[in-house]
Simulated scan of single mutants.
Amino acid sequence: MQISKWKRIVIKVGSALIAPHGNGCSSHYLLSIAQFIVRCREQNIEVVLVSSGSIAAGSHLFPGEVKNIATKKAMAAAGQTEMMATWDKLFDFPTAQILLTHADLKDRERYTSVRETLFSLLEYGLLPIVNENDTIVTDKLKVGDNDNLSAMIATAADADALIICSDIDGLYTANPQVDKKAKLIPQVAEINDEIYAMAGGVTSSVGTGGMKTKIQAAKKAVSHGITTYIVNGFTEQSFNTLLQGGNPGTVFLPEQNPLKENIHWMTHTASAQGEVVIDCNSSPELADDPSKLKSEEIVSVNGEFAIGDTVLLTNNDGTKVAKAEVNYSSCLLSYLSEQTLDVEAQENLTTKGPIISDKNIAILNKSE
């Protein structure tokens, strides 16, 4: 996809680019990225920046070896302001800070609010700068890495392209730092097990994401029709090549039949609050249309969830069937699954609506 066709892009910048030397933020590697953003905007391409780096930026203010999680959160609080100030001074247009946790994205109402905020900022010409809120996030609420966060934001923003900056040129057949025979893969048409197998571990001592998380992010993005690049963020030439319409690293081509926004959100962003085990063997149609689920086809109910929550539907052989919005609480479904209901009782349930909402269903064997 040529840059001339882009209307909106998301660019992800990691901690190693923000604070490469461990003594606070540095603009050394950020200048070329900022210039790229400026030149994109000059071509009427809207840009959203996903920037890691708050902990790395604030770590120099807390000397000594830090193992305490509370102190790392304090690092994030101090480093976030320094990081935003560093970005802000590189632009002659206003920026805006958006701090998120996974809870803000997996809840449909809050996710929609994030979308509306992004669209409003872009409409008024501001540069949204997004980061995970490391100061308050917990293990239960965190995305965990900004590669996957950038893919979620690219989807939320309806971006045309996602550019993930790395410390190497792209995806290689093997780790190029240990295997001299490793070759750069310029284009990936399908992300499969072979592609995942090529992804090594973390290559940076500063960041939390390695090549595997970048592939995961690319999978999320291309399934929504977003062209995704992994490029070397440490070289200015990467961004010059992009501006010239070239590919400086690895490009992941968008899927031909991308998921609709609500199905993509259900598949890749929403978190299942519980599990409903069903019997697809006796009712094969459930594998393609779980909205037809009846109480007698429920084998068991695991976890606690409320009406409107997202649940994972699993066949009794352990196969994941779908993620979907449920119209009954876990308590009621557990009761129903243990009862033998007569015809009148089944009709009464039907009048209250189906067990599974037919509006938000992601069939996992088709969409993952």
Rank of each mutant, 00 (worst) to 15 (best):
L99K: 06
R110K: 13
D160Y: 14
P128E: 09
L126A: 10
A157Y: 13
I163H: 06
A151K: 15
G170Y: 02
T135S: 11
E123P: 09
F119S: 04
T155R: 11
N148D: 03
L149Y: 04
E109I: 13
G125M: 10
L126K: 08
K106S: 01
D139R: 05
P128Y: 13
A103K: 14
A161G: 03
R115E: 01
H102I: 06
I136G: 05
I168R: 00
T155H: 15
I153A: 00
T173M: 12
L122P: 01
V114I: 15
M152I: 07
T135F: 02
I164C: 11
K106L: 02
L127D: 10
S120P: 03
L118P: 03
I164D: 15
S120M: 08
A157E: 04
M152L: 08
G125H: 13
L100S: 07
R110M: 07
G144N: 13
Y111G: 00
Y172D: 11
A156F: 05
R108P: 01
L149V: 09
E132A: 05
I168E: 09
A156Q: 02
V143M: 04
D145E: 13
V130T: 11
S120I: 05
I163R: 05
I168G: 10
D158L: 15
A151D: 04
D167Y: 03
D160F: 13
A157N: 09
G125Y: 14
A161E: 01
F119Y: 09
V114M: 10
S113R: 13
G125L: 09
D160S: 11
A159H: 07
D169I: 06
T117L: 14
I164M: 14
T155Q: 11
Y172Q: 07
L171P: 00
L149P: 08
S166Y: 01
G125F: 12
D104F: 14
R108C: 03
L162Q: 06
T135D: 12
D134P: 15
